[in-house]
């Protein structure tokens, strides 16, 4: 019985202690997660900001109060702003900003809420965009000539024109500003369409002319090449025939040189054979060979 009473007392003590510790921990501990910050105020007066993740402490309510802030980066897209470039062209530009809370105390005191911060940023962005783009030609943003393009410089100028003010005035750290959209006012688009149409017609005519010229060049070159090849072939064939004729002549000459008189005789007979054809009419004397045999004569 005495043991049971002792264990009950221990139990009560443990439970009571745990409960008290839990209440004390809950009232004084601040768990700051990664990507968060805590602003601690004492009777409403900011005393410190804990921006490092981990376990922090404060005095219990109502002395100290903690406000958690999201320190993650955020994206804010500005509105479409129409402005004049240096070369007096109307353009509509939209930028986006990647920002985060840089100074917790300044942010909490000057702005307090994310939505309100974006309103402040919009004003800064619009001013910076108008003044920055007014110092550059449109070709600094869109151009096929690489030397004209200055987008990096423009974005750096936009950042330089907004980041210090945002940091000092609102505790907002602007990390990057980019041109998200570059467009033309509705009134100017019609002229652009006309220009694009004229370009298309010009390109179509140019393509056709170039095609004709190129096709003609290819055909002419091919015909020239073919003629050159045929001429070379004819030349080579003529050379072969010439060499062959010379060799044939030499062969005949070598043989006929042995007995020129016999050659002339046989050649005459060959000529006779070739001259007399099925269309030839011959008139011969009856005392000539072989008719003379019938008359008992022989030719001499």
């Amino acid at each position: 019985m005495a043991n049971e009473v002792t264990s009950q007392r221990w139990l009560r003590g443990i439970v009571g202690t745990v409960a008290l510790l839990a209440i004390a921990f809950y009232a004084t501990a601040l768990v700051v997660h990664e990507g968060q910050a805590v602003l601690v105020t004492r009777f409403g007066r900011p005393v410190r900001a804990d921006t490092r993740a981990g376990l922090h402490w404060k005095l219990p309510w109502p002395i100290d109060q903690a406000t958690w802030l999201d320190m993650r980066r955020r994206v804010y897209e500005g509105g479409h702003t129409e402005m004049l470039t240096r070369d007096k062209k109307n353009v509509i530009v939209r930028t986006f900003v990647v920002w985060r809370i840089g100074d917790v105390l300044a942010f909490a005191q000057s702005i307090g809420e994310e939505r309100e911060a974006e309103g402040k940023l919009d004003g800064l962005l619009t001013n910076a965009a108008i003044s920055t783009l007014g110092e550059h030609d449109l070709s600094a943003i869109v151009s096929t000539n690489e030397k004209d393009l200055q987008v990096d410089q423009i974005e750096a100028e936009l950042l330089a024109g907004t980041a210090p003010a945002a940091r000092q005035s609102y505790g907002v750290e602007i990390e990057q500003i980019r041109l998200e959209r570059v467009a033309l006012p509705e009134e100017n688009v019609k002229a652009v369409f006309e220009q694009m149409r004229a370009e298309r017609h010009q390109y179509a005519a140019k393509f056709r002319a170039e095609g004709e010229r190129e096709a003609s060049r290819i055909r002419s070159e091919a015909e020239l090449e073919a003629a050159r090849i045929l001429a070379q072939g004819a030349e080579q064939a003529a050379r072969i025939r010439g060499q062959s004729a010379a060799e044939v002549a030499k062969t005949y000459a070598d043989a006929h040189r042995v007995d020129p008189e016999l050659y002339r005789f046989t050649r005459s007979l060959e000529s006779l054979g070739q001259l007399v054809t099925s269309d030839t009419s011959l008139v011969l004397r009856t005392d000539a060979e072989p008719f003379s045999l019938l008359q008992g004569k022989e030719s001499k």
Partner: peptide, 22 residues
């Protein structure tokens, strides 16, 4: 032989042969 062969062939090949007295 060559002469006679040649003459005979020529005569045989000709369309028409007329013989006239000397």
């Amino acid at each position: 032989r060559l002469y006679r062969d040649g003459v005979e062939k020529a005569i045989g090949r000709a369309r028409e042969v007329r013989w006239i007295p000397p």
